[in-house]
Computed example of a mutant assay.
Amino acid sequence: MADKARELAAQAQNVLAAAADQTSIWRAYVAVEYAILDVKMRHGLENEPAPATPKRTAKAEDLLTAAKDGLSRLDHDDKKKLLYELRQCRDALKALLARA
């Protein structure tokens, strides 16, 4: 059985690599959000604390870079760390979408 979270993270990474327009960012955000739900439900991590949200003053380029870098460095072996890293990527994408 394929790891759904790994597939979704790769999908988000590919979408962001192809283009960084508003639609692509939304698609990546949805894929990351779905991956978060998959990890939480599949591994019983519903009560894990969320990371701190990115600074409101962060530049759009920095948020996009943070999301791309985070997706490229995901640790799929440690599910708690994976959840934390996915949430960081999601928060960066969410902040980027809020700027538009």
Score class of each variant (00 low, 15 high):
R56G: 10
A28G: 09
A5V: 06
Y84G: 06
R90E: 12
V32T: 06
N14R: 15
E85Q: 15
H76F: 15
D3M: 11
S72R: 13
R87K: 13
R87F: 02
L64K: 10
R6Q: 15
M1W: 08
R27D: 14
L74E: 07
D69I: 03
A20W: 14
N14K: 14
K94Q: 12
R87C: 01
Q11S: 15
L97F: 06
K79E: 01
A100R: 14
E7L: 11
D78T: 10
C89T: 05
D75A: 04
R73E: 10
R87L: 08
K79H: 08
H43M: 05
A35Y: 06
D91N: 08
L64F: 06
L16Q: 05
A98G: 04
D77W: 12
L83A: 02
K81S: 12
L64V: 05
R6N: 11
G70T: 00
L74A: 08
D62C: 00
A50I: 02
A66K: 06
A2W: 12
S24W: 10
D38L: 09
A19Q: 13
V39S: 00
A67L: 11
R73F: 11
T65K: 09
D75G: 08
K40I: 00
A60C: 02
L96P: 00
K80I: 07
L82I: 02
L45Y: 00
Q13H: 09
N47K: 10
E46D: 11
A95K: 09
E46C: 04
H76P: 02
L63V: 08
K80P: 02
K4M: 15
M41S: 09
V15K: 01
R42M: 09
C89K: 03
S72W: 03
T53K: 08
T53A: 14
C89R: 00
T57F: 01
E46T: 08
D77N: 13
G70F: 05
L71N: 01
A52Q: 13
K40G: 01
P51V: 07
A95C: 07
D78Q: 15
D77G: 13
T57M: 06
A18Q: 13
